[in-house]
Design a protein around this nucleic acid. Structure first.
Lengths: 206, 206
DNA sequence: AGTCTGAATGATCAACAAATGGTTCAATAT
DNA sequence: ATATTGAACCATTTGTTGATCATTCAGACT
């Protein structure tokens, strides 16, 4: 399990995280990471096929923590509507604080979304797993009306709360104002979930 | 009413629109606009206090048309929920087509949102006037539950549909996919509007 | 007086040169 | 054979210098 290869991969990743968090992605060079690990730059390519791959691995690691928090929340106690609200509130707070405290994370996020467009989609899909759990709990408890396709509804919840994902990119609102807005939007959405939804046939089905 | 000053202002604005639409904002110089009007660059400043002011006037003019379409839609026939859906669908289509057809408009929009941050807010507020009209019609007809503060609810509708305002900035979705998503979100929101909303007290009131 | 110009100013931009840094790979070490 | 290096390659970035352009304003024109 703990073979040398994964060990070295780990070491490289740690060195990269250290530097990237301190100096940023662009300012961190492969040569520096290599020096920190006592190897040559070329050798890194036996463990990661590119610099952006290191960033992706780093982001995956960070997201593991978030996913665990989300899993705990989805599985934990409380009514489904409360959990749904808390879920989105937590997501907003997490990104708000991350972007607020160190801009280095933002830089990595931007580079990743440019170079690895599918990565963000994966994360969204993962998040939906937990949203669907909450939705299903709500249906079972009678708080939400039954629905054909919980995953689609989860996607709609994500769409409707998009503004609160990258708060400081859209608006220069303060956290309290964002909280009030998100609560307002959640009021509407949760009310919507409590009622059987008349599904619209697409204007232009594809 | 038609004094010379406003005439000249109009002439400058038209010349600017012509050039900006053709060559873009950055590539259009004050000297060129002045030449088109048969005057010196310095003289423009007797009519507009800066280049960005010209762009703002231009955007105001464009938005007048949009506002008229919105007013017509809000006042026109149809049930409130249908109109609410059509309203947001129209907004999405308008920006999608604008950004798709000529990137020049996007450039002006970007410069404006940087240099005149309050301008976009004004537009949003104007749009809300029409949203409130639709909401009030819906309440009168019984399609929407009564609400304390229609303007706040209109704001929430705007927040929840933010993703569909600048479609190509967020996602690389095609128009049909965006339509389906927006319809899904509207299904949720309209269902929410049909039910009396339990208003949440802010987690951290400010 | 009120209008307008064109030169002066300073900030931003473009273009080109130099250096940097991601990536590859033939040679070397183990 | 496998692991590692370091020089070489080329794309991107950085630094520098010379325009260009928005903006101002002292004076000219009416």
């Amino acid at each position: 399990m703990t073979d040398k290869t994964t060990d070295t991969r780990q070491q490289i990743l740690e060195a990269a995280v250290e530097r990237i968090m301190h100096y940023g992605y662009a300012k961190t060079t492969m040569a520096e990471i290599a020096r920190d690990c006592g190897m040559s730059a070329g050798n890194i390519y036996r463990f990661f096929s590119s610099k952006i791959d290191i960033a992706e691995a780093m982001a995956r690691k960070l997201n593991t923590e978030i996913n665990q928090k989300n899993a705990a929340l989805a599985r934990g106690p409380g009514s489904a509507p409360d959990k749904m609200r808390a879920f989105h509130m937590q997501a907003m707070h997490t990104t708000f604080n991350k972007l607020d405290s160190d801009a280095k994370v933002l830089e990595v996020a931007e580079v990743l979304s440019n170079e690895r467009p599918t990565f963000a989609n994966e994360e969204m899909a993962q998040e939906r797993v937990y949203l669907v759990q909450i939705l299903e709990q709500g249906i079972a408890e009678g708080a939400f009306a039954p629905m054909d396709n919980p995953n689609f509804v989860a996607e709609m919840m994500q769409s409707a709360t998009m503004k609160f994902r990258y708060p400081q990119l859209w608006s220069r609102l303060t956290l309290p104002k964002l909280e009030r807005e998100l609560n307002g939007v959640m009021d509407l959405l949760l009310a919507g979930l409590s009622v059987p939804i008349r599904v619209t046939e697409s204007v232009s089905a594809e």
